[in-house]
Amino acid sequence: MTAPALVFVVDDDPSVRRGLDRLLRSSGLTVESFDSARDFLDRPEHEGPRCLVLDVRMPGQSGLDLHDHLVTTGRDIPVIFITGHADVPMAVRAMKAGAVDFLSKPFDESELLGAITQALERDRRRWEDRQRHAGSA
């Protein structure tokens, strides 16, 4: 049986959160949205493939900072960055850090859904790998 896939959305802007929530749900995805990095980190790990749609500019911990934190703490969640104000250095840094994609707002659904699909595919493989290792051990 396949584990359910989950998409996390972290964005401080309520309009964006609601819009994204509806868009992803209407595409048949399960969404959980948070308005800050802190709130996301407080949520326990999900059992199953997951990905993170992450706004870059947020009060408190920014998206990039959160990503770095996830990387250093070994939480290997594929991240898709979204931002209202993009510049090249930011994008380069994000991609080098291993982000799946870097989209600038406003973005078309196809762009986002494509990135999410890609991200979830990757995470499913990691999840199945982990299950295999866990099962065979």
Binding site: D13, S15, V16, R18, G19, L20, R22, L23, L24, R25, S26, S27, R57, I82, G84, H85, S104, K105, P106, F107, D108, E109
Partner: peptide, 19 residues
Amino acid sequence: HELNQPLTGILSNAQAARR
């Protein structure tokens, strides 16, 4: 940045509605 937030909201909402 300030404009892009609501625009994103609008676009996402509209596309969601279409679906």
